[in-house]
Amino acid sequence: MAVPKFKMSRARTRSRRANWKASNADLQQVTVRGRTTAVPRRLAKAYQRGLLQIDD
């Protein structure tokens, strides 16, 4: 595990944290009952198996 060798200032810490960005989920086209919609890739099989319903 990385161990800091010097104390990091509050401003430096907060500016580093502020630059972190979450990425959007990858969407995959899924056709269920004749309707095609984009859903997150990790949920595609659940929609195809009928475990999740596509809302209107």
Results as ranks from 00 to 15, higher is better:
48 Q>W: 04
23 S>T: 14
56 D>V: 07
14 R>C: 03
1 M>C: 08
16 R>N: 11
21 K>C: 11
46 A>W: 04
51 L>C: 05
52 L>C: 04
35 R>L: 06
28 Q>N: 01
28 Q>F: 00
48 Q>M: 12
44 A>I: 00
8 M>N: 06
14 R>D: 12
34 G>H: 07
39 V>C: 06
31 T>Y: 04
26 D>H: 02
52 L>I: 07
49 R>A: 15
17 R>W: 04
52 L>Y: 08
39 V>Y: 03
9 S>G: 15
47 Y>F: 15
29 Q>E: 15
6 F>V: 15
2 A>W: 06
11 A>W: 09
12 R>F: 03
45 K>D: 14
28 Q>V: 15
16 R>K: 14
50 G>Q: 04
41 R>P: 00
32 V>G: 02
10 R>S: 11
8 M>F: 12
39 V>W: 01
36 T>I: 05
37 T>K: 07
1 M>R: 04
32 V>D: 04
24 N>A: 14
33 R>N: 15
14 R>H: 07
44 A>H: 00
13 T>C: 08
39 V>P: 00
31 T>H: 02
37 T>C: 08
45 K>V: 03
54 I>E: 00
37 T>F: 12
26 D>Q: 08
13 T>P: 00
15 S>D: 09
38 A>V: 01
12 R>L: 11
20 W>P: 00
11 A>L: 12
1 M>N: 08
20 W>S: 12
53 Q>N: 12
40 P>Y: 00
1 M>P: 08
2 A>Y: 10
36 T>D: 08
28 Q>E: 14
2 A>C: 05
18 A>Y: 03
24 N>L: 11
51 L>T: 08
49 R>H: 12
21 K>G: 05
42 R>A: 12
52 L>Q: 01
35 R>T: 07
41 R>M: 05
1 M>S: 13
9 S>P: 02
16 R>L: 13
2 A>S: 10
21 K>Y: 08
53 Q>I: 10
8 M>V: 15
52 L>R: 13
56 D>S: 13
45 K>N: 09
14 R>V: 06
42 R>Q: 11
35 R>W: 07
5 K>R: 13
34 G>S: 07
41 R>D: 02
28 Q>L: 09
10 R>P: 01
3 V>N: 13
